[in-house]
């Protein structure tokens, strides 16, 4: 029996600006309205051999106070260090309602959106919807403290996928293939139209020539004897585990294209350029039973806080509390 394929969880990172804008939105526009807010998070491929990248939320993740028309922010496209991920924020008015939120249910709702986009094919057209996230928070604007908890919903395969032959891309490919693939990836990452497209296809022909293509080109890649790999921007730096975004990608591949054996490519960079020693290639084996498409699969993904199932808390009184600011400015 092959070992299980284990995924390194996504990690969150919250820029101070996010809480500043949330506070002013709450005070100046939302009031006690606590309906969920559409937000965006950003991530990029791992770019250092020793630290993973995170899903980051910034002030731009939130809608602007000035945008009268809608509360849905527009993601900026084309920034290679900011692949946008759609998310939803439940900001409660009291600490009690923060704790009373049904976390399993909220996670399920987001997983259902991902599942729906997989079934309808939307995820093939716009792969940014494959990774979603949700945040629950309670912003205490009297004490300038923020309790929050992130979740990165991942659809579970049952039974879980197993893995064979997971190794650095530099060992999997011939030197010529690796060189051609690096060049193709660097070109993909420097083109404004594809720089922030985090899921893609890689084909390698008989002459070791690699091409990176959009997911919707899947049919066009068939039947010419080329090797096909499913690539994604991997935020994880670990040498033996792929990162979280591969989970929903495997569900998509299994549902859309009925594959049981999937060769995947975890794309990672060093100092902003493709690095085949850090990038991984492996083969995932999937044995989902007939009829699993009929119901939404179970999902997991609440972020742990130092290994514990707990929310996080940050105090920004020092930079937000007007009294303290007045004292330090006196």
């Amino acid at each position: 029996m092959e070992p299980l394929l284990q995924f390194a969880p996504m990690q969150s990172s919250v820029d101070e600006g996010f809480w500043h804008r949330l506070s002013s939105l709450k005070l100046n526009k939302l009031g006690i309205d606590d309906s969920p807010i559409h937000i965006f998070g950003f991530y990029a491929p791992c770019s250092h051999s020793q630290v993973s990248n995170h899903l980051t939320v910034l002030s731009e993740s939130l809608p602007s106070e000035l945008s009268e028309a809608s509360l849905i922010p527009e993601p900026s496209r084309g920034n290679r260090n900011r692949c946008s991920v759609p998310g939803i924020l439940y900001n409660t008015n009291t600490v009690e309602s923060f704790h009373a939120l049904d976390k399993q249910d909220l996670l399920k709702k987001e997983a259902a959106k991902i599942w729906d986009d997989i079934l309808t094919g939307k995820a093939v057209e716009d792969c940014s919807v494959l990774s979603r996230f949700l945040v629950i928070s309670f912003a205490d604007l009297k004490k300038w403290t923020f309790n929050y908890w992130f979740a990165f919903p991942a659809l579970m395969l049952d039974p879980p996928a197993t893995v064979v032959n997971l190794k650095p891309a530099s060992q999997w490919f011939s030197a010529a293939e690796a060189e051609s693939l690096s060049a193709a990836c660097n070109e993909w990452r420097s083109s404004k139209s594809t720089a922030d497209v985090p899921f893609f296809l890689v084909t390698i022909d008989q002459h070791s020539c690699a091409t990176v293509r959009l997911l919707k080109d899947w049919e066009a890649c068939q039947g010419n004897g080329n090797k096909i790999f499913f690539g994604f921007y991997d935020p994880c730096h670990l040498p033996k585990n792929p990162g979280w975004p591969l989970r929903n990608f495997l569900a998509l591949i299994s549902v859309r294209w009925n594959l049981n054996s999937i060769q995947f490519f975890c794309y990672r960079e060093n100092r902003g350029f493709a690095d085949m020693k850090l990038s991984l290639v492996g083969e995932a084996l999937i044995t989902v039973p007939q009829g699993w498409k009929d119901t939404v699969p179970s999902a997991v993904g609440w972020e742990l806080n130092k290994g514990r199932k707990a929310s996080r808390c940050i105090s920004l009184a020092q930079s937000m509390d007007p009294t303290r600011l007045a004292i330090s400015a006196a």
Partner: peptide, 30 residues
């Protein structure tokens, strides 16, 4: 001032038993 989250959170309704999640205290430099 900060409520002790541990009181609430360990009893929270987050139940996640998933063999495909890499178990680690938290992912840092390896």
């Amino acid at each position: 001032d900060i409520p002790d989250m541990a009181d609430f959170d360990d009893n929270s309704n987050v139940i996640e038993n998933d063999p495909a999640t890499l178990q680690s205290t938290y992912i840092v430099a390896h």
